[in-house]
Design a protein around this nucleic acid. Structure first.
Lengths: 137, 137
DNA sequence: ATACCTGCAAAGTCTTTGCCTTAGG
DNA sequence: CCTAAGGCAAAGACTTTGCAGGTAT
């Protein structure tokens, strides 16, 4: 957390209550949160409104501290890029439940290869599994 | 194509001009198309409107003939599930260019394992790479 | 004939922006 | 102070729905 704040400073962001509250919420949440979920969070709602949350997420994503995840139907969700541990998720197609998977990412080493082959830089990737959870099945 | 139509019939869908036009467009397009792109396609615009395209996509997805892809920023895109060849894509974070990757999917065999471990069924997955293309870099 | 499908128009949802004010450094 | 960040309100973009009439089987 201290680490993250420091990183924001270095990247030229101003350390505001809003920024801290948002990073806090993202840090405490074990799972990725949507813009809406953040906006509604009482800790945040008191301090800033949707536009601020939106723009703060934008900034954080811009400096690489935030990862945007595009899950089916639930819109974009966000999680902090803590360390380089890159997480994968399992989503229920019906109820939308999100589970974090504990696995070492099997495609990380592909990035460099693809980067060279296609002339792309700054590679990232998103690997998400979908299925029907026990309840929905 | 004939194959696909037959499959729709078996699944109880009615074979309408709209359905055929939409499947055609998806089949001809080498890359996934968004609802909007389909709606605007002259072949389709003449025949049916947004709501019909929307509901047709819904039905096709429902019977497993259509795959929904959630790319950053560009909204959902759709591609036909031709055979079991499951494709992966590389997207430019800035201009949104979509490239199909020719690779054998490295995580397919993980599905069964995850299915068992988590009590999920009907597994699918989505693996997408992002980067900056040569022009945008 | 009878479900299913379509068109139109409108409502929902989520995302993004403009403009002026506030406050971090 | 100076400029990034925030608040409010409204526009945009995309998705989804209700209902009356049309059509595949």
């Amino acid at each position: 957390m201290e680490e993250l704040i420091k990183c924001c400073k270095e990247q030229g962001l101003r350390i505001t209550k809003g920024l801290k509250a948002i990073m806090n919420a993202l840090d405490e949440a074990k799972l990725p949160l949507s813009l809406q979920e953040l906006e509604v969070n009482p800790q945040i709602a008191e301090i800033c409104d949707r536009a601020t949350v939106f723009r703060t997420l934008q900034r954080l994503e811009g400096i690489g501290l935030l990862r945007r995840l595009n899950f089916s139907h639930s819109g974009a969700k966000f999680s902090l890029n803590t360390g380089d541990a890159h997480k994968e998720y399992l989503i229920c197609r019906l109820c939308g439940e999100v589970k974090e998977l504990k696995m070492s990412c099997p495609v990380h080493q592909l990035e460099e290869k693809l980067s060279e082959e296609n002339g792309y830089s700054a590679m990232t990737h998103e690997l998400t599994f979908y299925g029907l959870c026990r309840k929905c099945n």
